[in-house]
Design a protein around this nucleic acid. Structure first.
Lengths: 246, 246
DNA sequence: GCTCAACTTTGATCAGGATCAAACAAGACA
DNA sequence: TGTCTTGTTTGATCCTGATCAAAGTTGAGC
């Protein structure tokens, strides 16, 4: 009862899902879960919710990728989060979404209506505790990203993004990252630029530059191979043993 | 019992303090509190804790100001948080501090030993709930700051910082911000630069520029008057009715 | 008062990344 | 097959903010 799992790293493809929860919950709680849980799917490019909209559910990513971003009146946009499978979306206790959420690939969310979810949180404090841990992790990641945005060069920014994507891709497949690993870039050059506070041209140039130096290899425009992880990490400018930015 | 307050906005100068808690807690909880609570003071400039250090307490700011920051090997530093009175420091459930914490003015913290605090959280779920809310707020602030770091011009960055400081100074004195308000700049130009991802020279120039345009007035180098709040907000580049960044 | 240190301002120059512009690549579809 | 669309690369030029350098300001301590 005190280690209910919220995400796929712990319990399967859907956080708080029927099976994962029922293994540890009372039958009556299980009933309630069925009543308040549902799936939603979005096509690549579709908005999930706009900043300021009332948000009647909390959810987590089952499959696909979504971004969290803000846009200024003149169109400048900054991505503030990348939501991969097992990530949580939503704010128990809040009514309005603070940022835009957009599906960048086809996306499936496992949603819980907010009010019943909050009731469940109240009855099962372990959920709140787990949510606090996840939120603290996200906060640390956000703060680490502030260093990237505020102080790193374009080249270091690209290397940092690739390092994160490599790390998360590895953890998604439950393998440690290793030399020679390769993964699909889920983001367009423009989306990468929005994440890094750059223009898409600069992203393109710096990716090419890293390729020319042999730090990364490209198969087509979207598949990346990292021949030497250490070399990539050196390019990020971080400490060798630096804290992984999720 | 379900709205225990953590900070001065709600209950006085010390979050979770004796008086604030005892008004709503059982006597036996109170006993325990006395045993696990203590104050620490730091002089301006002193470090509170370094990134990676084991952290045996959680705490919150009673008076003074501290910064949360990261430094790269070559000395580039990025401030990732500004801790004002009532802000919480620490991570229940974590052992190592993720960032450097430094007192920028004389500082008093109200500390709780971590283990007993975690026990208390377990016995009193309202504390965890409150902590989750506070952490969600911090996460939103961090993400809003990412827009500042990633997409704003130097001038907009300075305006954004001044707007935040004005807002927080007002809320500290429990007044709404108003035209003509003035407040003390708690940060050196260098610290402002570290917060904004700029150099101190650029900060100095842009502050002067805002002064020349009449957006702010300066009494000495550290006291700022905002004759027209709306004008300042316009300079930030944010929506007029934009979500306040803390 | 003077001296010293810490902080701030101002100036001159440089460079990294933005901007503007055009060509290229690859898939979707008729 | 050709056309269209979307995404990417590459080139030329510009500009914001960094860098290097020096002078100005303020307050503490004597």
């Amino acid at each position: 009862m005190n280690d209910i799992s919220f995400n796929t790293r712990d319990c399967g493809s859907c956080p708080i899902r029927h099976r994962a929860v029922c293994a540890r919950c009372q039958p009556d709680e299980l009933e309630q879960l069925d009543a308040i849980k549902y799936y939603r799917t979005f096509e690549a490019g579709q908005p999930v919710i706009w900043s300021g909209d009332p948000m009647e559910f909390v959810s987590s990513v089952v499959s696909g990728i979504a971004t969290l971003s803000q846009t200024m009146e003149d169109g400048r946009t900054q991505m503030v989060g990348l939501l991969l499978p097992s990530d949580f979306i939503g704010r128990p206790g809040r009514d309005a979404a603070p940022f835009d959420v957009v599906a960048v690939t086809d996306l499936t969310l496992c949603c819980f209506r907010k009010k019943p979810f909050e009731d469940m949180m109240e009855k099962t404090p372990a959920i709140g505790t787990r949510l606090l841990q996840m939120t603290l992790d996200e906060l640390d990641s956000a703060r680490e990203w502030m260093l990237v945005l505020g102080r790193k060069t374009a080249r270091e920014k690209i290397a940092s993004l690739l390092a994160i994507l490599a790390r998360r891709d590895a953890s998604l497949h439950k393998k440690p990252p290793r030399d020679g690993m390769s993964f699909e870039l889920p983001l367009t050059r423009e989306a990468m630029a929005d994440y890094l506070g750059l223009t898409l041209e600069t992203v393109s140039r710096q990716v090419s530059a890293l390729k020319k130096t042999g730090v990364v290899e490209l198969q087509g425009k979207r598949r990346v191979t990292i021949p030497d992880l250490q070399a990539l990490i050196t390019e990020t400018g971080d400490d060798v043993d630096g804290a992984p930015i999720v």
